[in-house]
Amino acid sequence: MSQNVAAPSWPRGIYDVLKAQKVRQVAYVPDAGHSELIKLCQATEQMSTISLTTEEEGISMLAGAWLGGERGALLMQSSGVGNCINLFGMVQECRFPLLMLVTMRGQWGEFNPWQVWMGSSVRPVLEQCGVVCYDVDEPQRVVETVSAASNLVFNAYRSVAVLIGQRVTGSKNFVK
């Protein structure tokens, strides 16, 4: 953790944006790339953190949060996007604001071939479902991107996914 003292980490930056935006419900299916952000949210009294069995639960839950007057965010890995598709119909029909923070797999330096197909499909699938996509591939641009996405979500009532690339999260490699 000591290296994080000198330069605040990008997960910390996302956390600060969520807090400033008064996000109260943070739903997630864990990804290694989101582990620090999840811990920060769990340690925050004003935030409920909700571990899901599948990502689509989060789409419904955040719709319910909005109906009840609260803002939420959904954290997931790229493979989870495919699990959400039918629920995007409700998001668009009802025009529910939706903030998704997606850590990408299957792209930059991926070693697992099973991740590649969904990873390559994330952007076209989301766009086909009416979700605006913001890519971010540099750690120093994460905060401004999440901040811009949050504005589009909560002030312009849109559904937006921030796609955080493997150049930011680091590529996993179990094989030599």
Binding site: R24, Q25, I50, E57, M61, G64, G68, G72, G89, M90
Partner: peptide, 22 residues
């Protein structure tokens, strides 16, 4: 009453988000 015309499988989770907010 928030009537659902779609989103099959999502009813209980909408209710959870609502219950946490209210």
């Amino acid at each position: 009453t928030f009537q659902m015309w779609g989103a099959m499988g999502g009813t209980t989770m909408i209710a959870l988000g609502l219950a946490l907010a209210q």
